[in-house]
Design a protein around this nucleic acid. Structure first.
Lengths: 219, 219
DNA sequence: ATATCATTCCAATACTCTTTAGATTGTCAG
DNA sequence: CTGACAATCTAAAGAGTATTGGAATGATAT
């Protein structure tokens, strides 16, 4: 290999993106952003970190061109800079799940039954929901619901769930979903619902996973 | 978000994989490994780094479970630990190419014409090669050719090209390929062939890119 | 203008990763 | 068993990253 410098340059550039994926906090921000555009403050609150720190991490993501910004009045909204970034995140996560035994163990500890859907049961669920046989609830904050949600799903954020229980039928099966397998909102929701005597289940898929299977999303 | 610790744990685990992708040297090793199994010494030589350093980087990759090892006599052979790792690498690289202007500029500086093939021209090339209208040569080291190569391609490593020029027809079109868009072997080969009066072109796709399009590979 | 609020910039600390050198392990050949 | 060789381990210096607090920017409302 005669020419040396340009080759190193190429890998260095790709490593810029790799470096952006090297911090747990940034990955959490990426997952939140895969739910839709959001402001720094909201992201920092959701990820439970300081705003300054969130800003610093977002800067790294922006310098790797994984996210873009837009000024919205006094706020600055961050969003993923393309579909391919979402699929990179899903791809990275799935490799980690496949290959890191520790991660699989951790996931199983958290979710007794890893109710991940097969392609058939996904469309099956869609059918049942359409016929009203099951109720699909989206327990994420309403902003994220509005940015895109599963067909036939109704928004019922975890924070409001307790005082809006009356909206749910006690006899039908309820399926709760949130941001995806790494998000614990739907897990909390199912626990609460079962305590109150509802027939509730978790679906680990989120909007991004759903869309990645080529299934429709409503906005 | 009530439960805090388990969630952090999940992202931390994924970040282990992200961290493995954060160094240019490791990415270069990943690209080399996507051409097939190889020993530490060979990898170190190809990447032009010290064996100790290569070993250290490979250790990081192994701890992230991106690569696996196998003892082969006195040697230890490393390989990617799955198809999904190859596709993660391609995915990461493609996001970098799409979003980093610097990378696109660097690529264009290196290759006057970025002769990347459309799906049609890929199968078209295959047809032409089958009919003998073009000669497809694989200029990687022969080990990598043996691990898997394009149909109708013949092995003609760059190192041997100069003294085996007689094997090539002067009148037909010659298409050279190597490890992929980041590899400069085929670029060198085309330069050499043109100097000697051959009608040579580079194809930037490598075996991994070819396979990712669902096209056949011979082993 | 002035005050306010969201966000970013700057600087300093603690921490982690990269790289090199030297010692060590494990395998094969004689 | 001994020597040769591939690869790894350990330790230490240098380089880079994460996190925090205080100052600065830029848009908006009074």
């Amino acid at each position: 290999m005669q020419i040396q410098k340009p080759k190193d340059l190429l890998f260095e550039q790709v490593a810029r993106v790799g470096k952006a994926l090297a911090s747990p906090k940034r990955l959490e921000l990426l997952e939140l952003l895969s739910q839709g555009e959001n402001t720094v403050e909201a992201l920092a609150t959701e990820a439970a970190i300081d705003i300054k720190l969130a800003s610093a991490h977002l800067k790294v993501l922006r310098e790797a061109r994984l996210v873009e910004t837009r000024r919205e009045g006094r706020f600055i909204a961050y969003r993923l800079s393309g579909e391919d970034v979402t699929s990179l995140w899903l791809n990275l996560r799935s490799v980690a799940e496949q290959h890191l035994v520790e991660l699989r163990v951790a996931l199983e500890q958290i979710f007794a039954a890893p109710e991940r859907l097969s392609p058939e049961s996904r469309t099956g669920l869609l059918e049942k929901a359409r016929r009203g046989e099951v109720i699909v609830i989206d327990v994420r904050p309403e902003v994220e619901f509005r940015a895109g949600h599963l067909p036939c799903a109704r928004s019922l954020p975890l924070a409001e769930l307790e005082r809006r229980l009356a909206e749910l039928p006690a006899d039908k099966e309820i399926v709760a979903y949130c941001r995806g397998p790494f998000c614990l909102l739907s897990d909390e929701a199912v626990r609460l619902l079962r305590e109150r005597g509802f027939k509730a289940h978790r679906m680990t898929d989120g909007v991004a996973e759903w869309a990645a299977e080529g299934l429709p999303i409503e906005a």
